[in-house]
């Protein structure tokens, strides 16, 4: 019920630029196959609407692509990059698979946890950072690494992590996968 009220009150709608991008995305596929644009449109929606996909946002995406809301929920819940709950402004995605583990990913995770006072999956009390441990991001030769928004931070040391967190806190901006880096 609350969600429905939200739709009516602060209307969920893409900006004109974003709508133009959606249109261009749909044009990449044959007629009637506009559902193919779902994954990229969800990325766009997540970037536009505070870094996560609420039910009203997903319903809005469904209406844009003329598909059923369940088709959007199915997809959003399958892929690891879509957040179904609110997240901090900057999500720190730390890889912990083999090569990163060999090169000290555990120390990186522990350091972030201690510094921010949060566990894996949690958001710092100021709403700035969310910590998310992830599986191999294709940066194994420059391990350990973390991804924040579109950017890969590689060959990490504890000092580099501190510098990064300081910088992100000062910038105080939401990072998204769509950022130009």
């Amino acid at each position: 019920m609350l969600n429905n009220l939200n739709i009516m009150n602060n209307e969920i709608k893409f900006s004109a630029e974003a709508l133009a991008i959606v249109k261009q995305m749909i044009s990449r596929y044959p007629d009637g196959k506009q559902k193919s644009a779902l994954l990229p449109v969800l990325h766009l929606a997540q970037a536009e609407f505070d870094g996560w996909l609420s039910v009203p946002v997903m319903d809005y995406v469904a209406s844009l692509l003329s598909i059923k809301p369940i088709e959007v929920y199915e997809v959003a819940s399958f892929y690891s990059m879509y957040n179904l709950k609110p997240v901090g402004k900057c999500t720190l995605e730390v890889c912990r698979t083999s090569s990163c583990w060999l090169m000290g990913a555990e120390d990186i995770v522990r350091h972030i946890q201690n510094r921010l006072g949060i566990k894996d999956g949690q958001t710092s009390s100021d709403g700035m950072f969310t910590l998310k441990t992830v599986e191999c991001l294709g940066s194994c030769g420059t391990a350990p690494m973390l991804q924040c928004g579109a950017k890969y931070h590689e060959n990490l040391t504890l000092e580099k992590v501190d510098e990064l967190l300081d910088k992100l806190a000062t910038d105080n901006k939401r990072t998204t996968y769509l950022d130009i880096v």
């Binding site: 193919s36 644009a37 994954l39 692509l65 199915e74 997809v75 399958f78 892929y79 690891s80 990059m81």
Partner: peptide, 20 residues
């Protein structure tokens, strides 16, 4: 959208069609 399984070619095609 972040899923190792989408490297498997038929899963990739499903994903390209906008599905799980």
């Amino acid at each position: 959208g972040g899923a190792y399984i989408c490297g498997e070619e038929t899963a990739l095609l499903e994903s390209l069609e906008g599905k799980r």
